[in-house]
């Protein structure tokens, strides 16, 4: 990070005061991450574009209620993105169960992709990433929960493994992730 780089917490403070320029810089900083995550969860670029817009609109409106003590701006945005994306995914799945009939082709197309779960997403997992450094079994349960919005029992059923095994893999995987984060902080900026 070079000199004069924006401190994200300061940007949020200025956004809360209605500063559009800071909002533009904040967008440039995080939009690729938000868009990548949204595309992976929703498996649709069009849906991801809509979500990207919604997430930043929410950030603009709720910048005033952001609290530094509850996590970094990046984690805050990621949480908003993921929870909205998963909500969207689940509502499409519920719709597929026939609660509300719909013949919107865009949605049934998305639903088909989501349900298959096996097709390649547009956003691919990078080799050498934190996820790639986890044992496969741990990475798999984290991916299914985090990116595909599945609950622990759904994952157990999907993998044909006991629930206890799934829980253990999740916790072990998370512990390693926390370890990576700690290591990164200790070694400083690479």
């Amino acid at each position: 990070m070079g000199l004069g780089a924006d401190d994200p917490s300061d940007l949020i403070k200025r956004i809360a005061q209605g500063d559009r320029e800071s909002f533009g810089r904040f967008y440039d900083l995080y939009a690729p991450l938000v868009f990548t995550l949204a595309t992976r969860v929703l498996r649709s670029r069009t849906e991801a574009e809509d979500l990207l817009q919604d997430v930043f609109l929410q950030a603009w409106r709720q910048a005033g209620s952001y609290e530094k003590g509850r996590g970094s701006p990046e984690a805050w945005l990621i949480t908003i993105t993921r929870s909205r994306a998963i909500d969207k995914l689940r509502s499409v799945r519920r719709r597929d169960k026939g609660i509300v009939p719909s013949d919107d082709p865009a949605y049934s197309e998305t639903a088909g992709r989501v349900e298959s779960g096996e097709k390649e997403s547009e956003a691919k997992v990078m080799v050498g990433s934190a996820l790639a450094r986890l044992p496969d079994a741990q990475a798999r349960v984290l991916e299914l929960a985090y990116f595909d919005g599945m609950s622990q029992s759904e994952i157990a059923a999907r993998l044909g493994e006991p629930l206890g095994t799934v829980k253990t893999r999740m916790r072990d995987g998370l512990e390693r992730l926390r370890g990576f984060l700690g290591a990164k902080r200790v070694s400083g900026v690479s």
Binding site: F35, A75, L131, Y146
Partner: peptide, 20 residues
């Protein structure tokens, strides 16, 4: 909060896609 920070490594594991 700690778990949330650690989980932010997951989306960063994805190959970045530039938004339009």
């Amino acid at each position: 909060r700690e778990t949330g920070e650690a989980l932010s490594l997951l989306p960063k594991s994805l190959e970045p896609l530039p938004p339009p």
